[in-house]
Amino acid sequence: MRRLSRLVVAAASACTLVGALVGAALAYPNPGLVTGDVVVHDPTMIRTSSGGYVVYSTHGYLEARTSTDRITFTRAGSAFGSPPSWWRTYSSGNDPWAPDISQQSGRYLMYYAVSGFGSNFSAIGLATSSTGQPGSWSDQGVVYSTTTSSDHNAIDPNLLVDASGRWWLSFGSYWTGIRMIRLDPATGKRLSSDQTLYHLATRPDAPYAVEAPDIVRHGGYYYLFASYDRCCAGTSSTYKVKVGRSAAPTGPYVDRSGTSMLSGGGTMVLETHGSVIGPGGQSVLSDVDGDLLVYHYYDGNAGGTPKLGINLIGWDSAGWPYVY
């Protein structure tokens, strides 16, 4: 009987171990099926009024890809046919980055950054469109900028409209991390009556590698998704997506354990697994079948080529997001 009991215990332990390994393997799903032209960095996606999808991404005057089914994507030009004159001040190659698209009061808005890699001599611009389609955008100029003497960086913008209808722009990369300003809904630019520069997230360890904020409202909280660690290094990338939440748009944001995102906190949402390397540069879209995490990753099966990733977001019983 003792031998049988030992066998039963051993079998149960083995099953527990296998279950743990399987659970770990399933902790992060692979990206959902996407095909066609899906080589992107820093994607933002919208479902237009006509029911189709447009993805905009870094480079090429803000590269555009369209889809009718959220699976097959086709390259469709760029947001801009030619660069606004002010871009060259911040980028000798007229190279815009990290767009953020949304639809507000019947028009489409796109915030984006112009900078040089590793520099905080940067600016965030705004463009508007009546359709959201490639080539339809009108530039509205600079919204916010930083210089090499600034302690933060004006890239990776994201618009939040809070529960009271107030507009906020979060942004930031390295230096002191994620910052936020309040915007005027009438212009989409900084609100003159509130010049506060809010601080949302940073790292306690140099080089303070947190960037690409995206804030969404769910239930009674605001959730700050951000990318941590090293981007843009192919299979050597260590990018990952973390999240914190707050009852107010300006923070404080804390992770599941209660650690502030101003102290390096952040609950993991997605990180390297298998051939999916360095996922990040994320945005969140609410679609007809739920919330989506839209991001890029480096494909270990394709020499580290950056590709579009899309996963549905679930919300657990405690209100924390996960991807599936």
Rank of each mutant, 00 (worst) to 15 (best):
A154T: 06
A123E: 08
V143F: 12
N153M: 04
I124A: 13
S92G: 14
L126G: 04
T89Q: 15
W87A: 05
Q140R: 14
T128C: 01
S119L: 03
S130M: 07
R88Q: 13
R75C: 01
G118M: 06
Y112H: 15
F121Q: 13
R65C: 04
T147K: 03
W137L: 05
A123I: 00
Y112G: 09
P83A: 15
A154M: 05
S138G: 04
A79D: 13
V142Q: 01
Q104W: 13
A64F: 07
S67P: 04
P99D: 07
D100T: 09
R107E: 15
D100P: 02
W86Q: 08
A64C: 10
R88T: 14
R65M: 06
F73H: 05
D95R: 12
I101E: 00
A154I: 02
T74C: 09
F117K: 00
G132L: 08
D151E: 10
G135T: 05
S145E: 09
L160I: 05
G135E: 06
S78E: 14
F80E: 13
T146H: 08
G132T: 06
S129Q: 05
L126T: 01
Y90I: 02
D151P: 01
S145A: 14
S150I: 10
G125I: 02
D69Y: 07
S91P: 10
M110A: 14
T66R: 11
G125L: 06
Y111K: 10
A113V: 05
S82E: 15
P99Y: 11
Y144D: 00
G106T: 12
G125Y: 08
M110S: 09
P134G: 05
N158G: 14
L109E: 09
W86Y: 14
P99N: 08
V142G: 00
Y111D: 08
P83Q: 12
M110N: 04
P157Y: 10
A123Q: 10
S129G: 08
D151A: 14
M110G: 10
V161S: 06
Q133P: 01
I124M: 12
G116D: 15
S85G: 09
S130Q: 13
A98T: 13
S115K: 12
T147M: 10
G81K: 15
T89I: 09
Q140T: 00
Y90H: 09
L160R: 01
A154H: 06
G141D: 03
V114Q: 11
Q133D: 10
W87K: 00
T131H: 02
A98H: 07
F80R: 12
V142I: 15
P99T: 05
S119E: 11
S122C: 07
P84R: 11
G125T: 02
Q133I: 00
D95T: 14
Q140N: 10
W137T: 03
T147F: 13
T66M: 11
S105G: 00
W97D: 11
I101Q: 03
N158H: 07
R88D: 02
A123P: 04
D156L: 13
P134D: 06
S119P: 03
T68A: 15
G106K: 11
D156M: 12
D95P: 00
P134I: 02
N120C: 08
V114N: 11
W97K: 09
A113F: 10
T148D: 13
D139A: 06
V143D: 01
